[in-house]
Design a protein around this nucleic acid. Structure first.
Lengths: 221, 221
DNA sequence: GATACCAATTTGGGATACCAAGATGGCGCC
DNA sequence: GGCGCCATCTTGGTATCCCAAATTGGTATC
């Protein structure tokens, strides 16, 4: 039974979905019994999730990584570097029709789209945009960064106004990219990422007490 | 006996030092007996090295990643993005005296310095420069990229002229950074990375036959 | 001589038994 | 009643065993 991938996927899902709170302790034995797998695949899953930054070592044991405000700010800088680079490559492509596919992705969200879907599409926008560059490393960097941001971004989805703003910015970026205007697209993307970070850090700092009340560890900047 | 880290380090050393050729098949049992550890730490090591891109899955088994020319070119683009971003951050720092430490590192190499040392310092220059930015993610990105480039870079060390040129460019970059001239430093770094890539890909394409003769798998661009 | 098929060995993935170190809690002493 | 120490239990790390699948080598048949 190839449980390994399953354990990894399910555990990642639980962590990203906040079913297991940031900062919670994990024991290999609990995971083992929870998913009906043995310790070997559990170990493999933990090692992989460790490299993704979703779990970490806490001395001897394992811990779900807390939400770290300082880390969020650093990731934003990192994202800006790699996403802008990817976008510039995409703008330089002869055939930029693939941006329409991403545009369509955005359009698929409307008023009665569930929160989870907005959350997912909001991340996939950046991931798929990076994929268009054709550079595997830039793509992976963006994907991994979005994974790390994923949990914190649940907050943004609760704010209708922020969401509308983000979608508008996404569309503007795509429009510039479609025209091949690299400078304008890059500028818009930078603004979007920085603004997104500010909104996120602000609302996270405000909600910090509430999050802690729910048992979520939040590390200050 | 905490062999795990040891297995990982030793195996990485052997791969990076080309003691195990690119493209070679690896069996967990061979590693196990080779390092006197059991399979659990061996697996942990392989999982980690997989995320570093040094080994990969070949269907069912494990393979030392071949040297991939297309990958080298993509990494150069990736490096340019993250290293330039890091360097710009560093140039914006109030206290940039730490660049002198890196300068000193460069000075430590002279005519009777062994090849291995030139190789190591050549990588550490970029890694430590990125570390100065203070951004953990940019730093890790550069470090991981240099790790992936490491094996191919053994070629560059054989070329005295290329080495001298690289060192001169390194010094120029540091000089601009010390003055806080971000644009100039970024420009010099970009030129250095692109030039470095060109030289590497060229000499690698030339040596391809020789490398294959030594049993090294080299994948074309 | 080539090819198809079968057996045996090898290999990675999973499970389990064991160990040493660290956390925990209860008991006794001050 | 509070503080400290020791027994115990828990936990991750290690080693070993088992299994299913795949590769390999040989043989028999065409």
């Amino acid at each position: 039974m190839s449980q390994m991938q399953s354990v990894e996927k399910q555990l990642r899902q639980m962590i990203l979905g906040l079913e297991i709170g940031p900062g919670e302790k994990l024991t290999e034995r609990w995971i083992e019994s929870r998913f009906g797998a043995s310790r070997t695949p559990v170990r493999a899953a933990l090692l992989r999730l460790e490299t993704e930054g979703l779990v970490g070592r806490d001395g001897r044991g394992w811990t779900v990584s807390p939400i770290n405000l300082a880390e969020l700010e650093q990731i934003a800088v990192y994202r800006e570097a790699v996403e802008v680079a990817a976008l510039r490559l995409t703008c330089a492509l002869a055939d930029r029709s693939a941006v329409d596919v991403i545009e369509a992705m955005l359009e698929s969200c409307d008023n009665d789209t569930p929160r989870e879907e907005w959350h997912r599409v909001g991340m996939d926008f950046h991931i798929e945009l990076a994929r268009l560059s054709g550079n595997e490393f830039l793509f992976r960097a963006v994907r991994d960064a979005m994974t790390r941001l994923s949990r914190a971004r649940w907050l943004e989805v609760r704010d209708e106004a922020a969401l509308a703003r983000a979608w508008a910015e996404h569309r503007a970026i795509l429009a510039a990219a479609r025209l091949g205007d690299a400078d304008e697209a890059a500028r818009l993307l930078s603004v979007h990422i920085v603004g997104s970070r500010d909104r996120l850090v602000t609302s996270l700092a405000n909600d910090r007490r509430g999050l802690r009340a729910r048992g979520f560890a939040v590390v200050a900047a």
